[in-house]
Computed example of a mutant assay.
Amino acid sequence: MIESEREVALDEDPFTVHRRLLFGTAYRLLGSVADTEDVLQDSWLAWQKEDRSAVRNPRAYLVRTVTNLALNRLTSARATRESYIGPWLPEPLLTSPDVAEDAELADTVSTALLVVLETLAPVERAVFVLREAFAFSHAEIAEILGRPEPTVRQIAHRARKHVDDRRPRYDADSVRHHEVTARFRAACAGGDLNVVMELLAPDVVAWSDGGGKITAARRPLYGTDHVARWLLGVLAKPESAGAALEPATINAEPGLLITLCGQTIGTVSLGVSDGLVRHVRLQLNPDKLRGVNLL
């Protein structure tokens, strides 16, 4: 798993040992690979200055440092996202197969959940991530956040209910998801409008994030015909210019990379239920594609 940890060797830096855990924590809090890397850099600098002899639990200390730095950044980022041009989507992240095979871990990094987490207050998001993704106890979270344990329990309950009420329900069958994604890819690449429409649910919704830098729909698109024609306009035309749709595991789910001359210029994430595509999310903002080059 991406957050799996091993025994710390006596001569090994705990920051290196726990780096995947720290990256996973910050990414789920921020939904941004670039911001996550900045937080890890700041955390590493703080760790280098720390008196290690006074740190009894390096793992807890590092998680606390990363969480607090991420919360500070998230608070300012929320103001920036209010003026964001068009729909805001999290930065996609290429994930290894072992993450996708762990259903619970995969769910906590899915694009759909990251979108829902954006609707939580920063502290609620932190409590949810630490509790649901990494199974920290309420007492541990209370220590990390510097809040009373009863308060953390209340926040955890409120955040969980909020997420459960808003998260979309997709098929857990990864085989079906792969099959639908493969058919979707072939239909879009071939410009087959009829097949694309067959794959879309009647109430399908599509979002595209261009960040004002790449042409994209400024509002969500609804309905089979509207979404299908728009998708082909975006995904079919680049084929003649040498672009291609490549399968990839994005945020622990089957997805597609839009590539041109070996360079990724966009990603496609599909929400699939009952064999139909319910949600389509296209990330086209060039500033938010760093994560598709990470494993």
Rank of each mutant, 00 (worst) to 15 (best):
D274M: 09
E118C: 12
D98H: 06
N68H: 13
E104Q: 10
A217Q: 08
D203N: 11
V129Y: 00
G275I: 03
Q263T: 13
N194F: 09
V66R: 02
R169Y: 08
S96P: 06
T95Q: 10
L114V: 06
E246S: 09
L282I: 10
F184K: 02
V163R: 08
A126N: 02
L256F: 06
D209L: 09
D225R: 14
E12V: 14
H138Y: 15
V234C: 05
P168G: 13
E132A: 13
E5C: 04
L22D: 01
V163E: 07
S208W: 05
V196Y: 02
T267F: 07
H178N: 08
R64F: 03
E104A: 12
A241N: 10
R229V: 03
D203H: 11
E37G: 06
V205H: 05
L282C: 10
V116R: 14
I141D: 01
I85W: 11
R78W: 08
V180S: 04
S83I: 12
P92A: 07
L105N: 00
Q283D: 04
R281T: 03
V234H: 01
R183G: 01
V109N: 00
G86F: 07
F136H: 14
V99H: 00
A77E: 15
V63G: 04
N72Q: 14
T25E: 08
V152S: 04
L105V: 15
A217R: 04
V123N: 02
T65I: 06
T65C: 14
L21I: 15
